[in-house]
Design a protein around this nucleic acid. Structure first.
Lengths: 219, 219
DNA sequence: ATATTGAATATTGGATCCAATTTGGATTAT
DNA sequence: ATAATCCAAATTGGATCCAATATTCAATAT
């Protein structure tokens, strides 16, 4: 008798669990810029030894989310205004291409899902969730593309400025304008107008960059 | 008495040494695609324990140069023709922007250095060094830009297709055409024509992609 | 002969211990 | 009191050992 094989691989390695948790805590701002990451302390929090913690930290450093100094340890990486601007420029270059590629590949189911996410963002009331809902909408559209490396780049770039994005969203008009722009991007996708969706995405990112830099010291 | 503090940090950590060595071996093709990386074996080669080896491998995986499976180990990552094409598209998007940004920042010293590298590439006779000399030329020009994140992206993208670049260079006309195109890019930089340098860089990459895909099965 | 079971081996993931380095405070000299 | 010095605590980097899992191959049943 044959049994259906069940995927029981739900158990992830300790280092991956620590990595995911630290990454989430960093991009959500629960760990502030410059805050040291003590291996011992983190190991105690997750009931592990420092080995998987070190592996997680080294992966986070490879992603640019932490900086480490030999024998001194790791701190949450911060960005200068100039660096922030560069990341937004990178996003403004890459993400329009992802959308352009994705539009012809969007199923009606995916568009329906994106419409829900778009509505959820526009009607959000809890500032703590602004960032997640914003990201949720964009990633839904991006997921239709088959450009996985482009998506990797975009994901990492967004990770690095997630804190600034959240700040921008709670600023005056941030949510309102983003909501409008999301809706326009969605409409372009529904019309199948890849060029327009691409252009609107670029302007969306450039606008966020501009409104953010206005409030940063000496951009 | 005060002593001048000397920077004695020449001693890198074991994990960094292993990381650099493995990365070099992978992109130069000394380790073939799919070849398993045995922690124990590597540890013996470097006279260390497996701990720094594991850290190095996890960093390499974060860069996409190896793939690991739980309890099965790491293998050198390969690229499908489609993935190779995507990486070249990414390069064709990012690197022209780096050059465009770099041109106004190029000192005459840097241009002189680039000219030397360009000549060295064109007069190269040992196929083993084609890849290094090619990269050397491009990185010299890119180094003038102040877009460090863009450069990170480009560096990693080039890493991932370094093997294919080397193959392309030894193909018929590969070196000859690359040499000509390098010279044209260099001339545009010397003239201070950022737009032209950018366009030539894009065409250089797109041309390499096209000539490469012609020789790949079912691109 | 072929497929299945099961034990021995190989390999990775993690815990514990030790070494190297930094950091901070007590001590001492001026 | 202040600055330099030195020692103890804290912290990271790495080695060794153990646990968990995968792989191989011989033994066995059909």
């Amino acid at each position: 008798m044959k049994l259906k094989t069940m995927d029981i691989s739900a158990t992830a390695s300790a280092s991956s669990i620590v990595f995911d948790a630290l990454r989430k805590a960093i991009i959500e701002g629960q760990l502030e810029e410059g805050e040291p990451l003590r291996q011992d302390e983190i190991a105690r929090l997750f009931n592990t030894s420092r080995i998987p913690v070190r592996e997680a930290i080294s992966r986070l450093e490879e992603q640019g989310l932490v900086k480490t100094q030999r024998y001194k340890g790791a701190v949450v990486a911060g960005l200068s205004p100039k660096e922030t601007a560069e990341i937004f420029d990178l996003r403004a270059l890459v993400e329009p291409e992802i959308i352009r590629n994705a539009v012809p590949l969007m199923s009606s189911e995916l568009l329906a899902e994106a419409r829900e996410k778009c509505a959820a963002f526009s009607s959000a009331t809890d500032p703590m969730t602004y960032g997640d809902l914003n990201r949720d909408f964009h990633e839904t559209l991006y997921s239709a593309s088959d450009l996985k490396f482009f998506q990797e780049i975009a994901d990492n770039a967004i990770d690095r400025v997630e804190r600034q994005i959240r700040a921008q969203l709670v600023m005056s008009n941030g949510m309102e304008r983003a909501g409008r722009e999301h809706f326009a991007i969605l409409e372009a996708c529904e019309k199948g107008d890849a060029d327009l969706a691409s252009r609107l995405t670029r302007e969306h990112i450039q606008g966020a960059k501009a409104s953010l830099l206005k409030h940063l010291p000496g951009a």
